[in-house]
Every structure is written in C-alpha cells, then in structure tokens.
Design a protein around this nucleic acid. Sequence first.
DNA 1: AATGAATGAGGATTCATTCAT
DNA 2: TATGAATGAATCCTCATTCAT
Lengths: 200, 200, 200, 200
Amino acid sequence: MTTATPARRRLPRGEREEQMLDAGERIFGMRGFRSASMDEIAEASGITKALLYQYFGSKEGLYEACLERGRARLFEQLQAVADKASSPLRRLRAVVAAYFDYIDEHRGSAWLLYADASMDAVNEMRSRNAEVLAALIMRDVNGAGGSVRAEDVELLGHLIVGSGEQVARWWLEHPELSKEDVIARFHAATDGAIAAVLRG
Amino acid sequence: MTTATPARRRLPRGEREEQMLDAGERIFGMRGFRSASMDEIAEASGITKALLYQYFGSKEGLYEACLERGRARLFEQLQAVADKASSPLRRLRAVVAAYFDYIDEHRGSAWLLYADASMDAVNEMRSRNAEVLAALIMRDVNGAGGSVRAEDVELLGHLIVGSGEQVARWWLEHPELSKEDVIARFHAATDGAIAAVLRG
Amino acid sequence: MTTATPARRRLPRGEREEQMLDAGERIFGMRGFRSASMDEIAEASGITKALLYQYFGSKEGLYEACLERGRARLFEQLQAVADKASSPLRRLRAVVAAYFDYIDEHRGSAWLLYADASMDAVNEMRSRNAEVLAALIMRDVNGAGGSVRAEDVELLGHLIVGSGEQVARWWLEHPELSKEDVIARFHAATDGAIAAVLRG
Amino acid sequence: MTTATPARRRLPRGEREEQMLDAGERIFGMRGFRSASMDEIAEASGITKALLYQYFGSKEGLYEACLERGRARLFEQLQAVADKASSPLRRLRAVVAAYFDYIDEHRGSAWLLYADASMDAVNEMRSRNAEVLAALIMRDVNGAGGSVRAEDVELLGHLIVGSGEQVARWWLEHPELSKEDVIARFHAATDGAIAAVLRG
DNA sequence: AATGAATGAGGATTCATTCAT
DNA sequence: TATGAATGAATCCTCATTCAT
C-alpha cells in the first residue's frame, strides 16, 4: 500500500536524463526555446517539473544540454568518418557527405543544428563548428605542403557552416531533391570556394 | 507652457508608424522576438501599447512589419547597385559588396538579416532572398549564353544567403578584419562556388 | 475633392439610429452584452465608435435602447391582438399565440426577450412583461364578475413569463415541433394553471 | 511567530478546491460571469490566480464547476425528498416544496439557478433540470396507469423550470410574501397545468 | 529520487471612452 | 454630423521557479 505509485519511480540517473533530453529535444524542436514550456517538457518526460529542475537547474541548462548532446552525436559521426578517410583530400568530402546523411537521418531533430539564431548557445555552437571545419581544411592544406592565412581558413569554416545550414534547410523543404545530387553540388561549391580563396 | 505637452499627440498615421517600427527594430534586435515585450516597444515609441495594436494587430504583425521594412531597405540598395552594374559579370560582385556595406552601416539593425531562426517570417525572408540571388545568377549565365539547371542555381542562391549570413555574423564579432578583405574573400569564394557548380 | 468621402455621410438622425440599433441587436444577440464590443457594433453599423457614443452615451445606453425597441415591437403586436379579441376570455389565448408567432418570426433576435439574466435591464423588462400579463388576467377575471387577490394574479404573470421564456427557448432548439402543437399545449397549461390558482 | 504565516499554505487539493468554489460562487453571484475577475476570486480564496488556473484551467472551467456543485447540492436535496415521498402523487409536490426551501436557504447563491442566460453552461443546466422534472412526471403518470406523449411531458418539464425560475426571482424581490403561500400557489398552478396538458 | 502545492511576475490583448479636427 | 488618433485600465492566462514532504 505504501509504494504503490505508478511504476515510473526510481530510475537510475542516466536513464532519467536521457528521457528528459529526448523530451526536451522534441519539444524545443517543435516550439523553439521561448515558446517551449517546462510544463510540457516535464509531461512529455513523464515526470514532474521539479525533477527537471533538480537535474538541469534551469530551462537554459536543459536547452544547452539538449544542444550539446545533439552536437556530440553529429560530431562523433563526422569524426569517425574523418578518421577513416584514406587521403587528406577526401576528408572534407567525407565529412560533408556525413553531415547531409545526419540531416537526412535526423530530420526530426535537425533543428539542433540551426535553432533559435537569437540564442547565444546556438551562435557559440556555430562558431565551434566553424572552427572544427577550419582545422580540417588547415590540416589538409598543410598536409599537402601548402600554407595559408589563418583568417582565410576561418572564413571558409564559417562560410561552410552557414551555407551548409541554409542549404540543408532548403533541402529539408524540398524532399524531392536527391541527397546525392545535393551533396555533389555542395561538394563542388565547397571545393570551388576553398580553392578560390586559398589561391588568394 | 500650455501646448508644451510632450508634443507626442496627434501625429499622422505614417509618421507614427515610422516611430513604432524604429522602436520595434531596436527592441526586437536587442531581445529577440519572444523576449521583447510590447510594453517596452510602446514606451520606446512614446505611445501606448493600445496604439501599437491598433496599427499592427499583434506582436507578430509588428515583427513582420519591421522585418519587411528592413528587407526592403536593403534590397532597394542592392537593386540600385545591380541596375548600375556595367556588365552582367560584375552584377553579383557589386551586390555582394553592397550587402556587406549595408551590414557595416546598419550594425545595429543587422539582426533583421538573420533573426530568430524559429520564426516562419524569417525563413520566408531567407527564401525570398535566395530566390532573388538565384535570379541574378541565372540572368548572368543566360546573358553569357550558357544554360543551367534551375535547381543548381537555386541551391547557389541558398548557399550564398547562408554563407553571407554566417560570414557577416562572424565578421561583426571580429571588427578588426577589414571589410575589403572579407569582401574580397567572399567574392573569391562565391565565384569559385558558382563556377564549380555550373561547370558540373 | 473636398467631400469625396465614401458616401455614408450625413444621414438624418433617425435613420442613423436605426442602423445602429440594427447592428446592436445583431451583435448583442450573437455575443451577449459583455462580450459584444463597441468596435464590432460600430463596424457593423458602418460608422465609427465615436458616433455611437454621441448617440447613445454608453454601451449600456445602447443595449437598453436595443432592448426597448425590441420590446416595443413585440408589445405593439400583442396589444393589437389583445384589442381585437372579441371576448375577454379569448384575449389571453390570442396574446399567447401572438407571442409564439413573434418568436417564430424573429428567431434571430428572440434573445431580446430573455437575454443576459444578470443584467438589471433584462430583469426589469421581465417584470414589466409580467405586470402586463397580470393586468390582462385581472381584466378578464373582473370582466367575468369574479374577484381575486392581486398577488395571485401577479404570481401568474411571472409564472407565464418564465414558462413562456423557457418553453420558447426549448422550442427554438427543437424546430421539428409544430408551432400549433406547442401553442395548444401552452394554452392548456396556462388555462389550467390560471384556473387552479384562482380557484384558491 | 515563525510558523504564524497565514497558515494558508499546503492544503490538500480537496480542501483548496472547496475554498475556491466558495469564493467563485460568491463573486460570480455578485458580478456575473464576465464582470467577475479571476483576480478578485483568487484574493477571496486566499490564494493566487495561478493556482486557480492550475485547478480549473480557465475562467469558464471555474464557472462551470461552481454551477455544477450548486446544481448537485440542490438535486441531492430534491432527490432525497422525491425518494421519501410516500405516494407517486406527492412526489412532485414534495420536490417543488424542496426547491423553494432551497432558494430560501441559499438566497445568497441562488444565482446558480438562473445565472447568465447567455452562457451555454447555464442553458444546458436548465435543460438537464427540465429533463429530470419530465422524468418525474412521466413516472407518476405511468405509475398511475396512464400514458402520454413524450414531448408533452418534456414541454411540461421546461415549463416548470422556467416558471419556477421566474417565480423564484420574483419572490426573492418580495420577501414579504410567505413561502407557504407562494408554494401553495405554485403547486396549484403546476397541478393545473400538468392536468390540463395531459388531458389533451 | 520524486512529487504536488504554491507563487510572483509578467505578457499579450481588449475595450470603453475621449478629444481635436 | 462624423472621424481618426490616442489612451488607461483591466483581464485572462502562462511560466519559470521554489519548497515541504
């Protein structure tokens, strides 16, 4: 008679966290940061708001945790692909392809990659992503014996992040376009842009 | 002293509207859509909330009006520049340069170009911009006697919109970079990307 | 160029008033007193709110004017019928029949007869109606040489008003019931009730 | 002095609900649905508006809950009386008497019986009440071996509801009239009406 | 670990009403 | 007679957050 409550009680921390992050991802994705309510997220997680606060401290905290988990998920994939690349030249291409694969597979939570532009957390993520790409390019160039100005590469990083985001957004709204085609065009564009900028 | 009352009474509709849009642009820019409050905007406009609603119907309505006025302002400039271009080949370059000029001159209201990603109005604006750019490219190509697939050009439109947005965002946070340098790199990148995509 | 405004300008007072009352009747009927807005009524009248205030002073004023016009319309009909009745005994029957006729013909504005119970104006109207009915009964009884207690007759007035209202409301929602049947039953009930009460 | 804080904290749901309904009944009764404000009701309940919404969802929700509790209270009494009636013939009389007793005892919250006519909830309540009365009459008639048309009985239900409401309203404004007298007249009227209608 | 009760602050929106023209 | 600009005061409702248990 004492512990006869629902059954969803007493989960280990890790599992509960995943539940909450799943719910957060879904609701934030549907509504955006400000429009999403902790109430709705709590309900979707099957727990009470109070627990949400115990785990993540604040709405912002939860949002960042969702964002970070999403980003980690993507970058693990990208990293794996990059590491497997046989030649430095193919690395970027592989990464770009993997990026679109990810978008394709996670259409529902793609928002994680380019959510509320007004939130600092998102812009920070964009910058980190740009830096990762810049490093990749840099490595390739250096590997090829060349040398470039750091800011050129940085600009390219941001350029690719921005264009990838918008092209992906466009593609998501045009599901009739084949992924291969989009990727091929994007490869070409990226290669062209990089070559042109590095050339000087 | 009798008629010295703030003088804010009885303005013709057009003028009042302008005041409100100015305030809206400022406040929405500082806080983002959801965080901005109609109260604050009204105060900044020097009138009451009620009038704001009489003129724009809703917060969304006001936001869209701000967005649209900003967009119009930019595109008038771009259009003027494009029309003046001596050769089709220089048109896009001129437009890109004008874009960065605009960003530079309107640092305060640059948010209009890449505001709350979650708002439909913003994504629609992005698409319209992409289409304008695509049309520009298309005209150049056709003018040069070439021929291309519509979706290639469309992809390029989105690619440029996305990269321009992110590169501008990055540049705004790095004021030490000279505008000319950024523009030159962006030109190179854009040219490279376009050439590469159209080639293949 | 000077007086080129729409055309709806400068109507004689009477006509304008009718327009406004028509609109008021319609909107108050649809929304109820508090939910109806002067804005909507003004728009429906084809004029500005300010004019509404010039004519009726306040929302309450307008409401009462609508109510009163509606009541007058009904009672004119009832009076005419009552006056034509050949014998005192038939007077009430004729009035009841005329009441249901009115309801039938004015289904759209029947609310005027039993609107917002919470408004004083409505309860006052009910009482006036009850008194009119009581007087009618009294006249019949006296005409027939009988004599009764005033409060008995008054109670009967209210009883008939209340039952007429609710039966009419019910009938409006059951249009499949023939008016003749409803009237016949109501006659019977009324006669039965009156006879029983007067008997003692 | 430490725990002396209003003591209003941490009540079990049931108790709090009761408090809120009491306050709602009082305020809605004084002001009518639209004029009553949730703020005032919250204050009268000794809690915050937010809790009111947590418990009842909306102003309408609270209103309906008040209405329903009032109706339940009355009908429990009526039911008890009806069940105790020794003969079917006395049932209706007992119920009518109990109705006026209730009005008398709850003068303060009598509005529950004839509140804002414009609200759907109120008209629904009226219909339910009419049906209960119709069932009562039907049972008596059948019990007596008679047989009648369903719609005649239904009409009688509505007729009694409407007349009871208006007569009660009238009586509340004439406290000098003895309850017994009013009831006696109402009995007579009701009996007369029923007999007349059923007769044909 | 988890809950249910409770709040304070604010936010969008609506409205009756006035006044200068 | 008729308008359009303008307001002040409410009103409903939502939310992030806390706390006792």
